[in-house]
Write a protein that binds this DNA or RNA. Structure first.
Lengths: 159, 159
DNA sequence: GCGTGATACTTGACACGACAATGAATTACG
DNA sequence: CGTAATTCATTGTCGTGTCAAGTATCACGC
């Protein structure tokens, strides 16, 4: 597989003037491409990336969670969660339970069907992980994660 | 600003079993967050990220381009471009011109208004670039770009 | 010329994400 | 108490992304 620097990949005539710009574009482009790949995998199982994320978060937590807590762990804004849960509920992958102590909060719970689907996806997801970045060494992966974590520390607060 | 490894940031109970998974999640999360930030900036100018991307590509090319060529440089599927161009045309930021030699292809062209808007955005965009990852050293930025480029080389063909 | 297939877009149906505004339940406080 | 502020969730609107299907044009073979 030939080397394909971003500059050539997007057919940019001029070299990047600023390393910040180049890094940002690389992050955005890589994120988009990987997102697309996972989206296609999940679609084979009748799920979108967002839906899978909700299910994965719920399984990781191991207990029913309020909508807001789920929204916090995804990048997304709160209102998006409602529709997301709606569609998952239609597919009978989650159930809503209004809390008795604070009747404003709605707890979301995985159904056994969802646990089964998640289990079916574990193998393919890990396979895709390896397909996408299995050619990087353990040291490179660690360095990449480290740099991205450091990059996110520059995010201004207010979101 | 406190260090915030991904494991803690998403409140994951268990450490990551696979460095591949950790790296992928870091890429996706960082990409999403940065995408959100830029989306908010562009919205102040009445644009979405996709719309800005189309305009930036057209300016970079410096000449009218067929729809398909634009679609190629974005991650997106062809049908999405039509609607995107429709809305840009409504805002009088691009113009459509059907080619005379091959009447199937439609050339998209920047309007002077678009050039002005792009110029207005150059400063803020570069400021945001620096805000987001200005705290990384030049060496780190270079290393990050290098690793992401290498990561994308693992993308299977067919898209 | 005249099919036949390929190419370049367009359209329509549906799901999603971001935002603003609203409703409903709870808490704070004078 | 009782009103105000806050919190949790939902709804509606817009732009977008995806797929499937359709239209217009071109290129080729006969």
């Amino acid at each position: 597989m030939a080397a394909k620097p971003l500059q050539q990949e997007i057919k940019k005539k001029q070299p990047f003037e600023w390393p910040e710009q180049e890094a940002i574009l690389n992050i955005l482009r890589t994120g988009d491409q990987f997102q697309n790949r996972f989206g296609r995998l999940f679609r084979q199982y009748g799920l979108t990336s967002s839906q899978y994320n909700v299910l994965r978060i719920l399984r990781g937590e191991g207990r029913p969670m309020p909508c807001l807590e789920i929204a916090e762990r995804m990048i997304q804004v709160v209102p998006a969660i409602t529709g997301l849960i709606d569609r998952l509920e239609l597919q009978e992958l989650v159930a809503r339970n209004r809390a008795t102590d604070d009747r404003r909060v709605v707890y979301i719970e995985l159904t056994p069907k969802a646990v089964r689907v998640l289990g079916d996806l574990d193998g393919p997801v890990q396979d895709l992980n390896r397909t996408l970045i299995g050619h990087l060494t353990a040291r490179e992966l660690k360095e990449l994660s480290h740099l991205l974590e450091k990059a996110r520390q520059g995010m201004p607060e207010e979101t």
